[in-house]
């Protein structure tokens, strides 16, 4: 079974986010980027499927973040066979445009499964995976939490809510929006990443950047209200513990 995993960088959620001067976007100059965590799960699931039933894993990365190559080398070190960096120095693209770019790149590849993260934190205009599925007219499951390869089809578990799931058999090729791999994404030693850098398995592909239709425009951004309604407890941990115990007791507990 041959899988293609679509990877996107997102602003590092651990870093403090700052807004640009006119309040219409993040201040992207100083942002660090990391791999979208759900894409990491998509990669893990693809690697598990390969380990179980053979085939190959190809990763496609789009985005101008300096960190993109590092993400692709890391994927190779984890077990991907081939990595392709799409374009160079591409600005921020709408998801609709990203889906066009990925769909064009997919046309040159042979695949049974396309996997990507269920969503990304900055996907304002839809989810990449489902847009790609719609564009290519392929069966799809979003919020996927497990894949079992069969002959010509794949059995996928989808999560609804409250622990309720459903299973689907999908004719391949199919597209999955992965919520969580069956196991936590693996770590990889830095030495293996260095080895991957020497492997020659990363290539670059020119892309045609679709014109941004400009149909969805952010006119203002602000930090979401944080703590506006909350009583913020001040002081050190001892003072905080004192106050929290008091609050819990006044709620009739503890």
């Amino acid at each position: 079974m041959n899988s293609v995993v679509l990877l996107r960088p997102v602003p590092d959620p651990v870093e403090e986010l700052e807004l640009n001067g006119d309040g219409t976007d993040l201040d992207r100059d100083y942002l660090g980027y990391v791999l979208n965590e759900f894409d990491d799960h998509a990669l893990e699931e693809a690697l598990l499927v390969k380990e179980e039933s053979g085939g190959s894993v190809t990763v496609l990365g789009l985005g101008s973040a300096d960190e993109m190559e590092q993400m692709l080398y890391t994927a190779l070190a984890k077990g991907a066979d081939r990595a392709i960096k799409l374009g160079d120095d591409v600005g921020h693209l709408s998801v609709r445009a990203q889906a066009d770019v990925f769909a064009a790149a997919l046309a040159n590849l042979s695949y049974d499964l396309i996997l990507t993260g269920v969503q990304a934190a900055d996907e304002l205009d839809g989810q990449l995976g489902m847009r790609v599925a719609a564009k290519l007219g392929l069966p799809h499951v979003s919020v996927a939490v497990g894949v079992v390869a069969g002959e010509g089809s794949v059995r996928v578990t989808k999560e609804f809510w409250a622990g309720i799931t459903a299973q689907y058999d999908l004719r391949m090729p199919a597209v999955l929006g992965v919520q969580a791999a069956r196991q936590a994404p693996r770590y990889v030693a830095v030495s293996l990443i260095r080895q991957a850098q020497q492997s020659g398995n990363l290539s670059e592909e020119d892309i045609e950047v679709p014109a941004d239709p400009g149909e969805v425009k952010i006119v203002a951004v602000r930090m979401a209200e944080s703590g506006s309604g909350a009583e913020m407890i001040t002081g050190d941990e001892a003072a905080a513990a004192e106050r929290i115990v008091e609050i819990i007791r006044s709620a009739g507990k503890g």
């Binding site: 304002l124 400009g214 425009k217």
Partner: peptide, 9 residues
């Protein structure tokens, strides 16, 4: 973390 106002053409 971020709240955005969006206009649609």
């Amino acid at each position: 973390k971020i709240e955005a106002d969006v206009e649609i053409a």
